Amino acid sequence: MIRVNHTDITEEQVLMEMQYFPAATQRQAMLDAAQSLVIGELLRQRAAALSLPLSLDETSCKEDYLEQLIEREVIIPQASDEECLQYFHQNPQRFKTSPLIEANHILITAATDDAKARVEAKLLAEQIIEQLKQQADFASLAQQFSACPSKTTGGNLGQLSRGQTVPEFERQLLSATTGLQPYPIESRYGFHVVDIKNKIDGLPLPIEAVKAKISQYLNEKVRQKAIAQYIQTLIDAATIDGYDFDTNRQSLL
């Protein structure tokens, strides 16, 4: 049993709430669910104390109260031009046009849940790389081994930019240098033999092109921090039995 001031939160409520909090262990899911219910009850009680025009029955959730409580009691500063400019200069790699990569590849497929197939696919990819190092014809090997439709064009993927392939493959492409990659690149689909023919790095964007996005990002960070601090003040002022926030390090939001 958890008690928030003079209101009880039952074990049944916690068990029902757990469905919204998948976690590695049942204990963690229970802790997360209990925390959500405690915070929701604190917000409900504060909304009632302020006589906010909201439904205050037990079926209401914390989001029903949070926005009006924020508007009434939380001061959220906005990012200044100077702060936006500082963030821009501190993170130049984030504000570039998308790079362009022209590459050929051979895909050796293997399901992510088939360990044996993954090992065999990686081994085959490594053998293909060794053949290519000995001047084997890439197009012929692509036609013979690749499971990608690009095998009909010699494995050519055309020009790739951000967002055109799966993230784990994209990350490795963007960080790679031109030429035949010495090791297979792994993705959810299997292993890729990759020869980068050309790579054009992204160009820096002017502050005017990204200032609105930076401001939105910084304002959201400040907003989340202010809300977390507000919730913490409600926790500090409450009498809570049966739940200890120190045992659960999940975000208060």
Rank of each mutant, 00 (worst) to 15 (best):
K199Y: 13
L100N: 08
P149F: 10
I200L: 13
L107M: 08
E11M: 07
P99S: 09
G242F: 09
L253M: 09
L42R: 06
S146D: 03
T97D: 05
N248P: 05
Q172Y: 04
F21C: 09
V38K: 06
R249K: 15
I240P: 03
E120I: 06
V38D: 11
R94Q: 12
Q144K: 15
I227G: 06
V4C: 12
Q144N: 04
K62D: 14
E120R: 11
Q68S: 08
F245K: 10
A121P: 06
A79I: 04
L43Q: 06
E63L: 14
F245L: 11
A238M: 09
Q164D: 04
I128G: 06
Q224Y: 07
L31E: 15
P77F: 06
E71G: 02
S60Y: 03
K225Y: 03
E73T: 02
V4Y: 10
E83C: 08
A238L: 07
L31D: 11
F169W: 08
Q90L: 11
C61W: 04
Y230R: 04
K197V: 10
A226D: 01
P92K: 08
S140P: 00
M16H: 03
L132P: 04
A212W: 02
L203P: 00
P204H: 04
Q45A: 07
L43C: 11
T7I: 15
P99Y: 09
E58W: 06
T25M: 09
G158P: 04
T109V: 11
R188G: 08
R44L: 09
Q93T: 07
Q28C: 04
Q134V: 00
L123C: 03
L173M: 15
F21Q: 11
G163S: 03
S146E: 06
V193L: 09
A111C: 03
R44K: 14
D57S: 13
T178V: 12
T112K: 14
L160P: 02
V74G: 01
Q135W: 01
S187P: 04
I214Q: 08
I240A: 08
D241F: 05
T178E: 15
S146W: 04
A226C: 14
F191Q: 05
I207A: 12
D113F: 09
A176W: 06
A23M: 07
T239H: 12
D8I: 13
Q35T: 02
F138D: 05
N219F: 05
L100P: 00
A48N: 02
V194H: 08
A48F: 03
H192G: 06
Q68V: 01
V222D: 02
